[in-house]
Amino acid sequence: MKRITNPWRGMEGYHCYGCDPNSPQGLRMEFYEDGDEIVSLWRPRPEYQGWVNTLHGGIQATLADEISSWVIFRKFQTSGVTSKMEVRYHRPIHTTDDHIVLRAAVLRQRRNIVDIGVRIYDLNGELCTEAVCVYFMFPQEKAHSDFHFCECGVEAEEANPFGK
């Protein structure tokens, strides 16, 4: 598994709620490429609860949306926008867990429309949430000129976000 480099890190005006590593109130997600999948190990915090010690469903949807965008960035080297999202909650995720794991991959592509499947697992590896995000991809020229997209690469060294 290789860590995906964040091409916007340090860019003036970059304050993404999902992936800005310096956002005090944001999710500060990091991403890894594992074959066809994009993976994120994310640490829940108490301020993201909906009910006592339970991760808010809207935060789960945001996590799914964000990792889906990184599938587009990395696998297609462009950007886009979410046009539709369906989320299915199977079991609660606890904000007291040390971490959760998100996995996302392309399910289907129809020209510039991409369906991305997302699975969110709790600390014990139990499937808690599934989502399908439908993305409209921009042509690479538009992504570069209008949305400051630049290459989304990976670090040379293998990474192990799980610390095992």
Rank of each mutant, 00 (worst) to 15 (best):
D122Q: 07
F136V: 11
V134A: 13
E126F: 14
V132Q: 11
P139Q: 15
P139F: 01
E130F: 00
V118R: 03
Q140W: 02
V134G: 06
I116W: 11
M137T: 14
T129K: 02
C128S: 08
E141F: 00
F138P: 00
I113W: 05
C128Y: 03
F136Q: 06
G117H: 05
C133Y: 05
D122T: 09
V132A: 04
V134P: 08
D115V: 13
I120M: 08
F138Q: 00
D122N: 15
L123I: 00
P139D: 11
V132E: 05
Y135H: 06
E141V: 09
A143N: 02
E130C: 01
K142A: 06
Y121W: 02
H144N: 11
E141T: 14
G117I: 05
P139G: 09
D122V: 11
V114Y: 04
E141C: 00
L123H: 07
D115Q: 11
G125N: 15
E141Q: 14
I113R: 11
I113M: 07
N124K: 14
G117Q: 12
F138S: 07
V132F: 04
P139E: 12
T129D: 06
N124C: 02
V114S: 01
D115N: 14
Q140N: 08
C128G: 01
Y121G: 02
K142P: 09
E130Q: 04
R119M: 08
M137Y: 10
I120H: 01
E126M: 11
P139S: 01
V134S: 14
Q140H: 09
Y121A: 03
I113S: 11
G117N: 05
E141Y: 02
C128L: 02
C133P: 01
V118Q: 00
L123T: 03
L123W: 10
H144L: 13
V114M: 03
C128H: 07
A131P: 03
M137D: 07
I120E: 01
T129W: 04
I116N: 14
M137N: 09
K142H: 09
A143M: 06
A143I: 08
T129R: 12
Q140A: 12
R119Y: 11
D122W: 11
A143H: 05
D122I: 07
M137E: 10
A143Q: 13
K142N: 01
I113P: 02
Y121C: 07
I120F: 02
M137C: 14
V114K: 03
D115M: 15
L123V: 06
F136R: 08
Q140G: 01
I120W: 03
C128E: 05
V132H: 04
C128R: 05
H144A: 14
N124E: 11
V132W: 06
Y135W: 12
C128Q: 07
